[in-house]
Design a binder for these strands. Structure first.
Lengths: 238, 238
DNA sequence: TGTCTTGTTGACTGCCTGGTCAACAAGCGG
DNA sequence: CCGCTTGTTGACCAGGCAGTCAACAAGACA
């Protein structure tokens, strides 16, 4: 009890955790410093003691979030697999990482509303994302050598594509649901979507690969995701 | 001068315009009613007179925004073209509509942070988006009949895909730029991206179409967009 | 034990902000 | 020209909120 008190590292972390929740749920302006303090069961002064200002706290939350998110994309470990599997895994990991960190999406949106002014200053970001593009380039090159991917694909475009397809579905779930009149939140719907976007990305990279001209759709079923790949989602309950 | 005063319709519209700007820039919580009033050169009471509350104003802004956005997607007029052109145009119109209405993106993000609670109530939304999915279904069916599109494509998936690819690039421009170390805002970069995502969507719909098995990449150049299609974007200036 | 540093708190403040009130002006129908 | 409806305003308020201050406790080190 008393020992838990006076543990600066733990206190700092506790603040970051609850601040993440609050900022993600309410946005920077909507978030209340007092409210975070209450959640932490700490006096508000602690937040200022550790982070100087509301904005300082926000930046700390952002950086911690990016680090966590990137660590879950596991792009380095993915390199071990053969190119096709590696790319599939990368899509899957990206989707899962975002699915498991909904706060990350909200925080990134917030940051984009601010035109990225917090992020731009932190050199950390570029260092964090460079290896990801490198991994994609690595995968693409090996795939081309193996004759399964076509040549001349820009890794940045691949990243942008898979990122868009993973992110938007989760980020804009609610407006999309209303617009389309379907449920996108069910596990089934998500599996279908993941399966679809994996197919899309793979199709883009494999289409017109030099070695074989066989219509690539034969290669799809079963290998897209580990799970049974339901191709055409029975229109979900509204 | 005096005649411009006492024009309720004009006043209402003026409020909506400036409120849109403010809400998009600052978010719901960050937006200041006083600030909107000042921009309108009206007393704050007018906003309450016409819209009852800050939230009422926000909802009005949202609905107006959706209407404007949808009207620019021009999906009905697109039906006249042949399936391939129609789909290409749909992607282009969607991208351009979002590009021309950056506030729309910010407002939708805001609405998603609120889990769509404002939008869900307005029946208008579904009515607004249903015809879009219908148009896609219409295009896909005609394309299948013509033998240029494969059968069994879910129009909702097509919409989700093109929507993701258009939206994310613009919505998350700033964090993506930092992550990738490239400029996404230049006209050149945007053209390249539009060209890329059009290719992606077309590839998905045409791949394995029954009539011809020819590797579809031969069909790509030139027809993707009206403009010179730069396939491999010279890596942009950082 | 005394003192210095580090972690922690209650109480406070001054400004900001959504929302209200009462009054006022501009037409308009009579 | 009177009075009613509709559009418009200045002044005001109560609560909320970021940030500060002075003081206090818990170890560390001597």
């Amino acid at each position: 009890m008393a020992s838990r008190s006076r543990d600066p590292a733990r206190t700092r972390e506790k603040i970051l955790t609850h601040a993440t929740t609050e900022f993600a749920k309410k946005g920077f302006d909507g978030a209340r410093v007092d409210s975070i303090a209450v959640r932490c069961r700490l006096s508000k002064n602690m937040l200022y003691y550790y982070f100087k200002s509301k904005e300082g706290l926000f930046v700390a939350v952002l950086e911690r979030m990016y680090e966590k998110l990137r660590s879950q994309q596991k792009d380095l470990t993915v390199r071990a697999s053969d190119p096709v599997t590696a790319l599939e895994q990368l899509v899957q990991h990206t989707f899962t990482a975002l699915l498991d960190n909904p706060e990350a999406i909200r925080l990134m949106n917030e940051e984009n509303r601010h035109k990225g002014r917090h992020i731009r200053q932190s050199r950390r970001m570029r260092d964090l994302y460079n290896p990801l593009v490198d991994t994609i380039r690595f995968i693409l090159e090996r795939g081309r050598d193996d004759g399964v991917f076509r040549a001349g694909i820009d890794p940045a475009f691949v990243y942008l594509s898979l990122s868009s397809l993973c992110y938007h579905y989760l980020s804009n779930q609610y407006t999309l649901e209303v617009a389309l009149g379907v449920d996108l939140g069910s596990e089934q719907a998500r599996e279908n979507w993941l399966s679809h976007i994996t197919e899309l990305v793979m199709m883009f990279c494999t289409s017109g690969a030099p070695a074989r001209d066989l219509p690539l759709l034969e290669a799809k079923p079963g290998r897209i995701t580990k799970r049974a790949s339901v191709k055409k989602p029975a229109r979900q309950s509204a």
